Simulated assay, not measured.
Amino acid sequence: MNDDQPEEWFRNSSSTVWGLFAAGAALAVVVLDAATGWHPETTAGGVLFALIAYAAFIRTKVGVSKGDFVLHHLYSTVRFPMAALESVSVGRTLGAYAGGRTFVSGAVGRPMREAVKGSKREHNPLSNQADFIEDRLNSLAQDARDRRRIKRDSDEQFALAEDVRRSWDWPLIAATAVVAVVFVGLLVF
């Protein structure tokens, strides 16, 4: 069911920067290698590194799309109705709870120092990105339940949580696997 819920996406603010930096570094190594005497294993290693950096830093995100809570992982996407989301908490990683299950994503998290403080830290969504994302996702989940007139922790909410769908990013998996096999093959032979 499409709830006319706004589409919103979240990730750590440094993820895109690190992803572009890693992909740029891999490209620089490949170009430098090509300029100084091409070695195919270096090119394959650089491409493999860039693919993994893309999957880890740029592809991973958490959000709301078409009435669903969506977790983009390295090579898969998990989605379920937003109204099924019981709560979200952000520690070192984001934990989303629905239907007695926990879904974890590294796309959003707190720095180690802040995560260790736990409940002793000050909750400030205006100046802390992790607090803002946690509050925003919990608020969107409550709004979705209100629109459907579903009470929190009700049988209807748990029934919605059974609609968990996982899809795999087969083109990215295939590209990574092929490049990894080529890289290992070039190193061994």
Rank of each mutant, 00 (worst) to 15 (best):
A141M: 02
S76D: 11
F132G: 08
F189T: 04
V116I: 07
G118V: 01
V17D: 04
E156H: 06
L160G: 12
R166Y: 10
I173L: 11
H39D: 03
V108N: 06
Q142V: 15
D3A: 03
A34D: 02
D155K: 14
L48E: 00
N128E: 15
V116G: 02
A83E: 13
I52F: 07
Q157I: 09
F132E: 15
R110G: 12
A115Q: 06
R165V: 14
M112N: 14
W9G: 06
A55K: 01
R145F: 11
D169A: 11
V31S: 00
R11L: 01
V70W: 00
A23E: 07
G109I: 09
T93P: 11
G24C: 10
L187D: 01
K66Y: 05
A28N: 14
V47G: 02
V108T: 07
I150H: 05
N128M: 05
G109F: 07
A25N: 08
L172W: 00
A56E: 07
F103A: 05
T16R: 00
R148I: 00
L126F: 07
T77A: 04
F49V: 08
P6D: 11
K120W: 12
G67I: 02
T42Y: 02
T16F: 03
N124Q: 04
L20E: 06
L85A: 09
S139E: 09
W170V: 15
T77R: 08
T77Y: 04
A98F: 13
R92N: 09
V90L: 08
V179C: 11
V104N: 05
L186M: 09
G100A: 13
V182I: 10
G118W: 05
L137H: 14
G46V: 01
G91H: 13
S119I: 05
F69S: 00
G99H: 06
E156I: 11
E122G: 02
L140H: 05
D131I: 09
V179I: 15
G45D: 02
D163A: 13
R147V: 13
F158V: 07
E134V: 05
G185F: 13
F80E: 10
A174I: 07
L20Y: 08
L27V: 03
V29N: 00
D135V: 12
V179Q: 02
W9Q: 12
D135H: 11
G37H: 02
P81E: 12
V188D: 04
K151F: 07
S127N: 15
L126A: 15
I52R: 03
L71Y: 02
S105D: 07
T36I: 05
A55E: 01
K66R: 08
A34T: 05
R145Q: 13
L51Q: 00
T93Y: 05
R148V: 06
S154I: 02
G118F: 00
N124S: 05
P125S: 14
A96K: 10
E156A: 10
A141V: 12
V62T: 15
E8N: 06
A53I: 00
L140V: 03
S76C: 08
G24M: 10
Q129W: 14
K151Q: 13
G19V: 09
M82G: 08
E134C: 09
F132A: 06
R152I: 14
L126M: 09
V31R: 01
V108H: 13
A130Q: 02
D135F: 12
G106A: 07
D33W: 14
